[in-house]
Design a binder for these strands. Structure first.
Lengths: 198, 198
DNA sequence: TCCATCAAGATACGGACCGTATCTTGCGGA
DNA sequence: TCCGCAAGATACGGTCCGTATCTTGATGGA
């Protein structure tokens, strides 16, 4: 409620202001204490305005996350599949840390009882992340001749981010060592078995 | 409150009755509507009795899950590493379905803000599951000569259940095809790279 | 320029559940 | 037999939910 006499916001301007407020509130009080009332207050608006758009704090958080995720981002080209995959895992890790373990789990928990929200989250974020990140890395490796494209399955494409997500969800952090073990003990052997020359 | 005139329960008897009630309530209303009040009512007791032992519905659910998980269970010996691993994944899947996607995610979310509960859940359930199930399978495979024990890392031991958990958490169900792709595209290649003869 | 419309924003409400304090009552041990 | 202790009942203030109602400001069309 900072805007006593300021002008009344509408449409996208309002919506963006609310989603920004969600993020601030999330950073300030954490996900478990993220309430509609708190967000409304911080955004200088009221609950009904929020409820006209989203149906719960988790819904709000999902929209906020979708809003903040960079639309497209690329993994740096390090010259090799191994280097690129490390970069891929590191980037994915950063993305996850931005959201945080608790928020990620809460969003997933919510989504598990709401097929509609599931589409938004899973397809809108998870799948996109995989496509944008893993996609680049593998396309490049195929161009280099390190990888035979026709043997790349969906499972293998998802694998790096799946392993990272699992680790992050369980422990809340992922060490350098963990990344290396995923890479050298699982990902690369699995790729080699499908014809990767690395 | 069915026990109007029945005798007053104490100690372990009471505790077990409460944990049973948690499970019934969970089955009846789902995890998101599992409240202390509801459980107390169903168990024929009252909130303070619950709060003397557990601090929240999630805490209750974690205790209930730990209570219901069979202490030791074994993977059937199918004669081969591949068959055993399928059995392992299937069994892990059944365990997860018993708890359910939502409850599992909610428990993990809770644990992520409570280091004390984390110990109970992660070490008491996750790690035990890995040790009990994967342990058996790998020990057997080593005895058969299919696997070189000294090359087995912690990551590889965890791998099957990690993959299964990730799949279950994302989609809430795991198909036969999914199990096979985990096995043939990831797990077995990773094991072969460490000297498995399969 | 003025007005009709519509959403923003304020306020209030019943309800669910939380977490705790207080009290009584039955059980079990000494 | 009686004492101590925990079970169980009840009540309370508090927070947040989700909605209904009302006022007010912005916008677009005549």
């Amino acid at each position: 409620m900072e805007r006593k006499t300021a002008s009344r916001r509408r449409g996208d301007e309002l919506e963006q202001a609310i989603l920004d407020a969600v993020w601030e509130e999330f950073q300030a009080v954490g996900f478990s204490k993220l309430t509609m009332e708190g967000v409304a207050k911080r955004a200088g608006t009221s609950k009904p305005v929020l409820y006209r758009r989203w149906s719960s704090p988790v819904d709000l958080m999902i929209a906020c996350a979708a809003n903040r995720i960079p639309k497209a981002e690329s993994v740096p080209d390090t010259g090799s599949l191994r280097g690129d995959t490390i970069a891929l895992l590191t980037l994915a890790h950063e993305r996850m840390r931005m959201v945080g373990q608790t928020a990620m789990l809460s969003m997933l928990a919510q989504v598990s009882v709401d097929p509609e929200a599931r589409k938004v989250l899973i397809e809108g974020i998870v799948v996109n992340l995989v496509k944008a990140l893993s996609g680049t890395v593998y396309t490049r490796a195929i161009a280099r001749g390190e990888l035979a494209g026709e043997h790349l399955t969906e499972r293998l494409t998802r694998l790096p981010i799946d392993l990272m997500r699992n680790e992050f969800i369980l422990f809340g952090h992922v060490s350098e060592d963990a990344i290396e073990s995923m890479l050298d003990e699982v990902i690369l052997p699995a790729l080699r078995a499908r014809g990767a020359k690395v």
